[in-house]
Design a protein around this nucleic acid. Structure first.
Lengths: 292, 292
DNA sequence: TCGTTATTGTTCATTTACGCACATGTAGCT
DNA sequence: AGCTACATGTGCGTAAATGAACAATAACGA
């Protein structure tokens, strides 16, 4: 049963009773309708209609087709309106992938968004591996660093995160302050990555001898916990430092210690209302984030 | 949502995940598949798939289409097998139109046929007006006289009915026998039709003065009843005369008093198993009819 | 790291399907 | 009877959809 268009043509003929009427309804020439019917009947090896001067009368097979194709027509019409409508409404599932460290900022914002759109189910995923927007793994990604130029991705600046080199009060009480010439006497918390992309970790690698890095973690959450535990001196986002009064700044901030955070969407989904609305909401809410 | 073929193409892409796979499944070139998808998405104003090097991933809209078109595909497949299969089985409805007078012979034969095919519903219709096979009003028609040459009708001889000019015993006791020269003294039963097509009624019109026809009826059933009631002399089928011993033959049979009975089917339905089986059954059973 | 394979995407020639015009036939109405 | 309106059916030229070939890119494995 290949060629669904011929079924659709036969459906209109069965429904209207004439080739001419079906042709008008379908917006094609009546010769085309006749050809479709002939081809379909030939392929099925059965007559769908009895032909006469007043029109086409459906046989039992034709009436069967009428019933089946009628349902199909309804379902396709509903499908089309669903698809057309879905682009304008914020429902279904929204998949956001983000740096795990941003969760404390992101989750309340998402919760607020969900408050405004109760029908929206949200999945917030954070993982070591990169989720690929072009495979449909997520609708919106929040990423750091300048991304490899994925041509189908739409990248826009979200905010700039300032990091501070901090340590716990307990650490300072034990090891003292940090200055330009006593680096070797201090303990640091760094990244597990040998060649980190983040500029502050690269600054750490260049400035601090490997032997002074006593703790390595793969996530910024773990880094912060290590610093809080007094393991050593490490980088913590400025907004994250503000959430506790146990962390003291060990050096004045440098230019390199800023991380641009990007908002990434896939081209195909970017203009949908769901993504658009969420992105707009993120940009509005970021103004109230303590990130500058 | 016009162009169901594009939906079918999109369905295969959503199902298989790649354009190439869909193209192979559909038996078309992959360029065609891409064009269908692009056209469909353009018309819907929404993306059905996210394109990447590994294939096409269905968006929510594409998954919706996959579900709907999957059902459609199943239904169409079932429809096709039903239509193909239906031609080979004797089920559903069989509509037979016949001369009302033949019912006593026809009904037992149809009942026997129905015994062999229990799933068959039968409608036997007899009416003054002609039921038209080309409008699907009946599958099989049993008709008398040579029909106007309907090109789409398949006409085959069924049997030849011999009529006899008879009267009731009561009539004979009262009016005496009929001979060539006492026609004017007798009473006759004729047709309501001014110019009857049946040759025996035309013989009656030519031989008997109009004033001698005391009873006119439109159906042969009524004619027979009138004759039985002693109203006059009339034509009754020979097999019908045999069913009672109250009717006596008034004149020896003439050549003109035979009526050819035809079996008529429509071209489009003639080769279906239902019609074929029924026609074969009729021809087998007519041998046991008392019509010669 | 470099082929290999399996994808998508684009251009151009060709086939196929379409629309047009005309013929034909039927039903209904004056 | 004849006229009108509406239906199916058919041949032909054209436009649109298709297929083939090629390009490009990404994932995979040795």
């Amino acid at each position: 049963m290949d060629n669904w268009d011929e079924i659709r043509t036969a459906f209109q003929v069965a429904r209207l009773g004439t080739v001419s009427g079906a042709a008008e309804a379908l917006g094609v020439h009546h010769a085309t309708v006749i050809r479709h019917i002939d081809a379909l009947e030939g392929r099925l090896g059965a007559k769908l209609f009895q032909r006469h001067a007043r029109g086409y009368t459906a046989t039992e097979a034709g009436q069967d087709l009428l019933a089946v194709a009628g349902q199909t027509d309804d379902q396709f019409t509903q499908l089309a309106s669903r698809i057309k409508g879905r682009g304008d409404e914020v429902t279904g599932e929204l998949i956001v992938t983000s740096l795990g460290a941003l969760s404390p900022l992101l989750v309340p914002t998402i919760a607020d968004f969900q408050e405004r759109h109760p029908d929206l189910r949200v999945r917030l995923i954070s993982d070591a591996r990169l989720f690929r927007l072009e495979y449909g793994e997520a609708h919106v990604a929040i990423r750091a660093g300048k991304l490899p130029d994925q041509p189908d991705n739409i990248v826009q600046p979200f905010f700039t995160q300032t990091l501070k080199l901090v340590a716990s009060k307990g650490y300072v009480a034990r090891f003292g302050p940090l200055s330009g010439d006593n680096v070797g006497e201090h303990r640091f918390v760094g990244s597990t990555d040998e060649t980190p992309r983040a500029p502050y970790f690269r600054w750490l690698n260049e400035t601090v001898p490997t032997s002074s890095i006593y703790f390595r973690a793969s996530s910024m959450v773990a880094v912060k916990e290590a610093v809080l535990a007094g393991v050593g001196i490490g980088f913590v986002a400025s907004w994250d430092q503000d959430r506790t009064d146990d962390l003291v700044e060990m050096l004045p901030p440098l230019e390199d210690w800023t991380a641009k955070i990007w908002l990434v969407t896939h081209m195909d989904l970017h203009r949908t209302a769901k993504v658009q609305t969420f992105v707009r909401h993120l940009k509005e809410q970021v103004a109230s984030w303590p990130v500058d």
